[in-house]
Design a protein around this nucleic acid. Structure first.
Ligand code: SF4
Ligand code: SF4
Lengths: 141, 141
DNA sequence: CCTAAAAAGACATTTTATATCTTTTTAGGG
DNA sequence: CCCTAAAAAGATATAAAATGTCTTTTTAGG
């Protein structure tokens, strides 16, 4: 239960890798994929989602590639995960209580809200910058 | 992401209902299923799992049915959820780090451990007794 | 124009979720 | 000793989600 999908795992790997590069450095998707050991075509889909919401910037054509959209210290793990997995929802009634006719007087309902808050809290408290190690900071791609 | 399945939702509904009955009262599966609005055949599978680990006691044949295996204040939501959904695992490396060759120096790994701890903590802190309302306590089935 | 690279969309396969149905076992009561 | 009620066990079915791949299109530099 509550398992991150491969997509989410790959998403984190890819963007953390990018966060270790100089902010203005454009990296090839193929290079990123090889470095983090993810199928390139799958990572492409993931980075397309990132690009749409500005988490990364993309450049097409010759000399194109990806760079981080914002400084690594301003991007949280929560953003990254939710970008590809959708919102953190421990139970469907958390997002739309009206879906369950029992939600009115349900005692379990608030528990899922708390789970949601705790998980979001943990993930929101971690930035990409904090996830970088010495060895991966500012290496070229 | 992190969504409880129907099975887990149904499991909670069913056992909370049972927890509201007198401890020695045997309830028919069909009655429970009807009361909590769950497909009877599906709930049967769920209660079979409960029965195997003693969360509920089952009685076969005429006059058979189910009753709670232990007092409601001693059964946590974590037990119930894990009984049918398996352990709370935000990412597979939490359970077997050796599956991921990056786990050695991975900075993300500990985050998933924290997520796991937080979620388990919330669910472990809630007992079936606490989930009962006035109206459902000690009603006959 | 030609080439490199990402974007977009269609397609394929596997796994998981969500059940249902049938047969078997167990137990009580006449 | 049957007959019936009820759970247990196992097989099967369908739908949805996960996990990729492939093809075509768009964009941009040289
Ligand atoms: S019964 Fe309660 S916990 Fe379950 S879906 Fe409805 S509101 Fe949510
Ligand atoms: S890269 Fe890190 S977080 Fe991802 S599976 Fe491996 S150890 Fe876990």
């Amino acid at each position: 239960m509550m398992e991150l999908t491969r997509k989410g795992e790959y998403a984190i790997r890819g963007i953390v890798y990018l966060a270790g590069k100089p902010i203005d450095k454009v990296c090839l998707l193929s290079d990123i994929a090889a470095a983090v050991n993810v199928p390139p075509t799958f990572l492409a889909k993931i980075f397309q989602q990132f690009s749409k919401i500005g988490l990364v910037k993309s450049f097409r054509g010759t000399g194109g590639g990806f760079m981080l959209g914002r400084p690594p210290e301003s991007i949280t793990l929560l953003e990254v995960v939710e970008a590809v997995e959708g919102p953190i929802i421990p139970n469907r009634c958390v997002v739309s209580p009206s879906d369950c006719e029992r939600s009115g007087e349900c005692t379990v309902h608030p528990v899922w809200r708390r789970v949601q808050d705790e998980v979001r809290g943990v993930l929101e408290g971690v930035t990409l910058k904090e996830l970088l190690t010495e060895t991966q900071t500012h290496t070229t791609c």
